[in-house]
Amino acid sequence: MSKPPTQPPEINTVVAAVLAERAHLPGALLPVLHGVQDALGYIPPETVPEIARALNLSRAEVHGVITYYHHFREKPAGRNVLQVCRAESCRATGAESLLAQARARLGCDGAQHLSADGGHSVEPVYCLGLCASSPAVVLNGQLHARMTPQRLNALLDKTSSA
């Protein structure tokens, strides 16, 4: 089997550190993938062989897990990540129009999550547990509930100018 392509050192270092910390856990794959994504923002496909080797799994198994779960990314997200809840409670309070508003404003075409300028990812999310204060969004990890079109615009004004 050929050797995997050489990776930039920082990715190698991150993967080695995460594996050293978590590879011994029972059922370690999800904790390992979380560790890599937390550090790098995504799980580069070139890390799959090393993760598979360390956990005694096939590359197909690791790839299968990464692509099965919505949370894991194979590519970097935009500089800013906006997640809009689409589940029933938020739909009852205007979530769909908030999502459409954000996509239109940032220029997300078709099924694309990435905005035209690459500055924002706009993604659906299914329940943030803020259902008593719907609708809810997450912008760069910060929760915002009782969202309105005006407040969403104000939030995006800040990230768009940053």
């Binding site: 029972p26 059922g27 370690a28 794959l29 999800l30 993938l33 979380h34 956990l55 198994e61 897990v65 099965y68 779960y69 919505h70 949370h71 894991f72 999310v125 299914y126």
Partner: peptide, 19 residues
Amino acid sequence: AGSYVCGEETAMLESLEGK
């Protein structure tokens, strides 16, 4: 990791096992 069906108990076990 963002999978609704992992609230089903056996799917959750699979997930805990790293699958």
